[in-house]
Amino acid sequence: MPDTVTAAGPWGALLAGVLLVVLAAAALVAEGVLAARARGGPVGPELTRPLDETLRLLRQRRRAPVSADLLLWRVAGGGLVVVALLMVALVPLGNRVVADLDVGVVWFTALDVLVWALVWLLGWGANAAYSLVGGYRFLALALAYELPLMFALVAPALAASSLDVAEVAAAQDDLWFVVWMPVAFVVFLVGVAAFSVRGPFTSPAGADVAGGVLCELSGVDRLVARAGLACLLVAGSAFAVPMFLGGGAGPVLPGWLWVLLKTAAVLTLLLALRRRLPVVRPELAMEVGWVVLLPAVLMQDLVVAVVVAVRG
């Protein structure tokens, strides 16, 4: 595992974007296949579903409700993809990284806070009741998951004594952080599922509010918003790799391939778990977040801090 990473340049940035979209499409296929198997339907059509949906939505005419705030609405939908791109830009692929920031961990937190604004605006911009309900549901969930998520990212940064993502990955040469900070890892995954509106946190886009934040979206607007949420899931999973899973460390295969394999493994874990967990109501999530997750992750941070202090 190299200690230093070099900037990937514009072609590297493009490649990172392509990989993000490909993995997001794969995640959507996997979601579709799991859903089809669960209800006993045919699996075949699910394999090309993201492509079919893309083509269908590109042909569909865009419509908007009366006096929708089009500017904010469309900024919100498109912004989700941008946030996901900025997130994967931080993840070193082998010894190349798109954005080598010395405060990468804080930058990631700033980005996932941006998701609050974007999803709420997605709900607000449509000027429709169900959308707005969805937006508020997301904020209620956000208040529950955000602090545990932030404190979960404190643990690896503390252990590596660095906010630089590449240095955090390099600090796991002897032992992956997931082994001795499992609580922080689990809480981080909960946060990833939540900010990409997946699994137990689908209530902002739930069927009970006719699709919530997504309900009025159509055509290309719907395409970018749904792609954005899927990309966020992938970006969050990819960020878990340098934070908890040793980055590109692994035998035989090159570093970049290990990063991709580990990202796929985290994605699979999240997708497999989502079918086994019920959707949580936002007001219940609040108390779970503050009474269970936050103290647990703070204890985890304390343990890490003591270990770091004792090791010197």
């Binding site: 920031l101 010395d102 405060v103 804080v106 930058w107 937190t109 700033a110 806070v113 941006l114 609050w116 604004a117 709420w120 607000w124 508020y136 904020l139 956000a142 955000e146 906010l163």
Partner: peptide, 21 residues
């Protein structure tokens, strides 16, 4: 000032999201 700059972005976006609500 990487840390300060990123922190300003983080805090202000969060604050505005909560304030809007």
């Amino acid at each position: 000032q990487g840390y300060l700059g990123v922190l300003v972005v983080l805090m202000m976006v969060m604050e505005m999201a909560v304030m809007g609500v």
